[in-house]
Design a protein around this nucleic acid. Structure first.
Lengths: 138, 138
DNA sequence: TCTTGACCTTAAGTCGACTTGAACTTGTAG
DNA sequence: CTACAAGTTCAAGTCGACTTAAGGTCAAGA
């Protein structure tokens, strides 16, 4: 039963100790106990931190991430809610793909003002339509 | 030459008037002039706002978005930098795809604690490896 | 001409996610 | 036994992206 102190968790996860305390305070992670004052974490916290990192990269708030993976790693959301989250992600992935295409286009297209390039406009319109249809996040 | 007042831009774009002023202050958009005190915007601002919305959804800061599409819609970044941004986006898309898969798995897998499900762990490890290899954003 | 409502400016406030600072505690090495 | 590095708590600060409040301006309609 190898327990890790906070600096070890910080080192292995790349998450600052202050952030780890913050996550614990917010209930996203839990220490397995203390040695004196010092927190000790079980190794599973590293996986949990990977999920947190991922969730953040995907644009979820700590509160949402906490909701997704419950107090102790168990998912606390119902299947339909999770499916909705997954669909939101699909949406966001589509947006990001649009933006990526747009940026690649800008990098390659010789037009001086991209806002006037028909292809660029088409890309914009596509994404604008998407957000018009489903403005869930705005 | 149809110019739009701020509330019309807000209505058509779904962006709050206060946010539009904020964007102008930060140099992301520009008003075409004034009628009295009141800002008038050219219609191209709507496309610019679509780009801004997209960039935000993709996790870029206003500063970065401004950098990507320059003061007046022209790209101010060099091609290599843009290509790097596009690659970052590919990366982030991959992360989000991982998370989506993870969430869908959680929604479907009957295991009580997903952190202990081998498939789930595999998904986590994959994403953890990705961020270990390229910790650009952390 | 007068009123009104939409817009203006500036400053301050808010929110999330941390970070930083100050003062305190403790297991462990010397 | 003592010193000290590494932790601790709690409060306050920071940063980005806005929003809100307070007070001011002005084009247009009655």
């Amino acid at each position: 039963m190898k327990l890790l102190d906070i600096s070890e968790v910080a080192r292995q996860s790349g998450v600052a100790a202050s952030a780890l305390r913050h996550y614990e305070e917010k209930g996203l992670i839990h220490s397995a106990g203390r040695r004196g004052l010092k927190r000790l974490f079980g190794p599973e916290v590293l996986d949990q931190l990977a999920v947190i990192r991922l969730g953040k990269a995907a644009g979820f708030s700590l509160e949402e991430i906490k909701g997704m993976f419950g107090p102790d790693g168990r998912p606390s959301l119902s299947r339909p809610v999770l499916r909705t989250k997954a669909d939101d992600l699909d949406d966001q992935i589509a947006r990001m793909t649009s933006l990526r295409d747009m940026i690649r286009h800008v990098a390659d297209c010789p037009a001086p003002r991209h806002i006037e390039c028909p292809k660029f406009q088409k890309l914009i319109r596509i994404s604008a339509r998407r957000s018009a249809v489903k403005p869930s996040k705005f």
